[in-house]
Simulated scan of single mutants.
Amino acid sequence: MDSFAAGAIAGITEVITMYPLDVIKTRSQLMVGKSMGTFASLRNIVKQEGVGRLYRGILPPILMEAPKRATKFGANDLWGQFYRKLFQMEKNNQSLSILNGASAGATEAIIVVPFELVKVRLQDKKSAHLYLGTVDCLKKIIKQEGILALYNGLEATMMRHIVWNAGYFGVIFQVKARLPAQPEMLNSFIAGAVGGCVGTVLNTPFDVVKSRIQNSPRTLLPAKYNWSIPSLFIVAREEGFWALYKGFVPKVLRLGPGGGILLVVYNSLMEFFRKYKLTNPTGQIPAST
Results as ranks from 00 to 15, higher is better:
F248G: 00
K25P: 01
E108D: 04
T200Q: 12
L221E: 14
A8Q: 04
G74E: 00
P281M: 09
V175Y: 01
I111R: 02
K91C: 05
N92I: 03
A66H: 06
N152Y: 02
G11M: 06
R69M: 14
Y131N: 07
W79H: 12
M36E: 13
S188H: 09
A70M: 06
A70P: 03
L59P: 04
K224I: 06
A106F: 15
P114H: 06
G105N: 06
E65L: 08
G260R: 01
S211W: 00
V118A: 11
P257I: 08
V175I: 11
G196F: 03
H161M: 14
L138F: 14
I285K: 13
S3W: 07
C197S: 15
L21G: 03
Y276N: 15
F39G: 06
P67H: 07
G260I: 04
T13A: 15
F87K: 07
G199K: 00
R84K: 15
W242H: 12
G133M: 05
T219K: 10
D77N: 12
T282F: 07
K251R: 12
A40G: 13
G167V: 04
K68Q: 15
E184M: 05
T289K: 13
I190N: 01
D207W: 04
Y245H: 07
L221G: 04
I110P: 05
V120W: 00
A104T: 08
